[in-house]
Design a protein around this nucleic acid. Sequence first.
DNA 1: GACCAGGCACATC
DNA 2: GATGTGCATGGT
Length: 215
Amino acid sequence: MKSKLNSIYLRLHTFFGPQYWWPAEDTFEVMVGAILTQNTSWSNVEKAISNLKDKKALSPIRLFKMPVEELARLIRPAGYYNIKARRLKNFLKFLFASYQGNIRKMSLGGIRELRAQLLSVNGIGPETADSIMLYALNKPVFVVDAYTKRILLRHGLAKEDYDYAQLQDIFMRGLTPKVKLFNEYHALLVKLGKEFCHKNKPRCLICPLRRKKNA
DNA sequence: GACCAGGCACATC
DNA sequence: GATGTGCATGGT
């Protein structure tokens, strides 16, 4: 398993080159983006982030103080804007309650503790929590997303019924836990998915092969 | 116009 | 505990 994971990584890295994720200017922007991108294309998230920047609102204290209705209006292009505005507010309440809004203070925490805290916030699930852990807080936690699962299935490394934790374990057990490696690996899987996945259509090179009924 | 995107919570059985 | 559903915009 280990050598297979490593060889996939090397081939992706050779083909696409380093991705240098997360696409954001600072740590807080990563956190906001992680929530906004839930089941949403990144191009839509960029518009929402851009709105927040135009309003000079992209800081913990600004978003913490902003009325939820105004926040929802600004992030509208990201879709699910009402629920995401509440989710951002939930996260900010946690950030101020536990760390006085200080992200650096937050980043001093241990992996297990931080992950549990993030998961306790309503609106932050495993992928969002792990994206924040890895890309904002620089903790060696592997991020699993829809593309990751498709690619593992296609290569026979996972089964259809595997849940998030099982998929994550494949990487956490099979790779040396380095932040830079986990960072690039997940980014490369997403890059591969974006470029070559065609949603179960016959020409798709990513989705698991489907057995033909009469073959 | 249908289908999808870097999920998650909640209702219902 | 599994399965279904709401949330919503913008691109293909």
